[in-house]
């Protein structure tokens, strides 16, 4: 049909692409899927970034005006924001690091020829298959001050003299929530690391063994360097997911007690939907994007320099 168009295409595209009217038909076929994504996702996102520079309020007829960087100024001097930002960083860094360490250990074990390996592999996937809300509720049952199993077990072991209200204790709530975060994110991390381990060529280990390298040296000099790209990818993703976490902690503590687990997005949610400061909450969201990009830039840049 369109010989000219065909001739101009690179050979690879010609083989794969259907030699028809191309452009317009494709657009027509894609339209039904594109419209909702543009209207309800891309558009709102762009508008949301604009809102960060306005004084938008939640009221239906509230007037909105452009205020430039005023919101950012407010944000930088807002003690509540900095408190929540600090908690967010502690949360995201600890969960990401613990998740990675625990998952790497598990992936190494699952890669060995152990018995019950199949069972452990299935079990390792279960948290992934659970609705986030159910995970939160389940751990509330575990941490429950009177009816929870944690207090009961710790008292049986003699580690605890009285019942502790884990999720309502000022100093224990954040660590308790971090444990749930690690539990929830382990499956994805383990699966990705396991796939990475299985992709390392066996000859490398054979060569290492011939040279008489110990198991530890083989891990340090073969496994880790080979796994590096996978590790950088999954820890970056985990960090982004963790710092943007909301639902799990909302179900567990709603940010309490006294804001001890109020992650930045819980803070933003309250600003927007409890107090009605849409513009300010959007500013906070945008600030988080900047922080995430900066952290990832530094981290990935350093890893790439070290690798080369």
């Amino acid at each position: 049909m369109t010989l000219t168009a065909e001739r101009t295409r690179p050979p690879d595209a010609r083989r794969r692409g259907r030699p028809t009217s191309g452009g317009r038909e494709t657009l027509l076929l894609m339209l039904p899927a594109l419209v909702p994504v543009l209207v309800f996702s891309v558009g709102p996102l762009l508008y949301g970034m604009y809102l960060a520079f306005t004084d938008a309020r939640s009221g239906r007829n509230a007037e909105t005006s452009f205020v430039g960087l005023a919101n950012f100024g407010d944000l930088l001097t807002d003690g509540d924001f900095w408190a929540s930002f600090r908690i967010g960083l502690i949360w995201a860094v600890s969960v990401t690091v613990l998740q990675f360490t625990a998952s790497l250990g598990l992936a190494l074990l699952l890669n060995e020829n152990l018995r019950f390996r199949g069972f452990a592999r299935v079990l390792a996937l279960v948290p992934w298959a659970m609705p986030p809300v159910v995970i939160g509720l389940m751990w509330r049952l575990v941490y429950h001050p009177n009816a929870g199993i944690l207090n009961s077990v710790l008292q049986d072991l003699g580690l605890l003299g009285h019942n502790v209200d884990w999720l309502n204790d000022f100093s224990l709530a954040l660590p308790a929530v971090i444990v749930v975060g690690v539990w929830t994110g382990m499956p994805q991390t383990t699966v990705v690391l396991l796939a990475g381990l299985q992709g390392i060529p066996g000859e490398l280990y054979e060569a290492g063994q011939m040279d008489g390298a110990s198991a530890w040296r083989r891990f340090w000099n073969i496994t880790l360097p080979q796994l590096r790209p996978v590790i950088v990818t999954i820890t970056s993703l985990d960090f982004v997911w963790n710092i943007n976490q909301f639902g799990l902690v909302y179900v567990l503590t709603q940010g309490g007690p006294g804001g001890q687990t109020r992650l930045p997005l819980l803070f933003a949610y309250e600003e927007a939907f409890r107090y009605g400061f849409f513009g300010y909450a959007a500013t906070l969201g945008l600030a988080m994007v900047i922080v995430v990009l900066a952290v990832l830039g530094l981290y990935i840049g350093r890893q790439m320099r070290e690798a080369s």
């Binding site: 794969r16 038909e25 996702s41 996102l45 508008y47 943007n244 997005l265 959007a282 945008l286």
Partner: peptide, 27 residues
């Protein structure tokens, strides 16, 4: 058809991870 849109769809899945939900949910 090999179109830029296919790459965009996958790219959007990745890029959208970075934006916190609050930026989308308010608008």
């Amino acid at each position: 058809h090999r179109t830029a849109l296919s790459k965009l769809a996958v790219g959007w899945v990745l890029v959208s991870q970075i934006f916190p939900f609050i930026l989308i949910i308010i608008p």
